[in-house]
Design a binder for these strands. Sequence first.
DNA 1: CGCGGCACCTGAGAGC
DNA 2: TGCTCTCAGGTGCCGC
Length: 305
Amino acid sequence: MEVVRRGLARWVRGRRIDAVDVLDPRSIRRHALGTEDFIGNLIGARVSDTVRRGKFLWLPLTGAPVALVAHLGMSGQLLVEDRAQPDEKHLKVRLRLSKAAGDASMPDELRFVDQRIFGGLFVTGMVPTSDGLPGGLGENPLPLVPVEAAHIARDPLDPAFSFEDFYRKLRARRTGVKRALLDQTLISGVGNIYADESLWAAKLHYARATDTLRRAEAVRLVDSCREVMTRALDAGGTSFDSLYVNVNGASGYFERSLNAYGREREPCRRCSALGLDSRIRRDIFMNRSSYTCPRCQPRPRSGRW
DNA sequence: CGCGGCACCTGAGAGC
DNA sequence: TGCTCTCAGGTGCCGC
């Protein structure tokens, strides 16, 4: 999502939305007032920035505390392309952008493409942040956040992220640490893959009880989250100069650097470096696959499901 | 009210 | 070849 945010910024900032085409209303179902209202709110509006908190990305519009919010779900993409490009198979929403001043060669469409429609777009009002700090990560973010994203905690890459707040909330929970990592009201931007990678890096088992986590362990965990996210960002960021702003950022570089996720029965890299043979195991946890090394991430005696 | 389970959704791939 | 089944996972809602 951060790859997308950074990639989008140079193409959409300052541009006016001249036309909107909703090809599949299911992709704007989170816009409660319907398609006509969605379009009416966007036509003539100007994009001032691209801001992200966790997996929510929003484009604040000038003139009012209102934003176009995007969530990519599992399979969503935001693409900047010229109208001459053929429609993608799963094209859901097309925004026609004004010609940029002094650069007529700029592609003139922002497209939302989504195969599984877990993601979507909506226009909503913004409210002040509870801490008075910028709403999220952006070029020049205002202390505002979309209503629907106000409950989302700050991202560990956000300069306003507070470890103390996170640690206090974590200790108050009565659950397992992976469930807590995936709870976007505690910490945002961590999904199933990054959770497994961060837990592996911090040598913690997913079922470890949150109320027994020591400060040093929580520090290790948050540091690991940042490290994993930064590494993924560096890998995805290689295609920034393309007109094609790709989501799943998936140049594939990051996938090759995974240490736990998707490596069932493969040797744990940390253990093999010590000359030990330990194979990554896959458990079904929270109806999701969870990957751990049984040797360096041992299951706690009394873990929490 | 906190926690856990599950529906939502589609296409790829496996198995027969 | 074509059918059915399983799997992928972020979010929000519902029930306990």
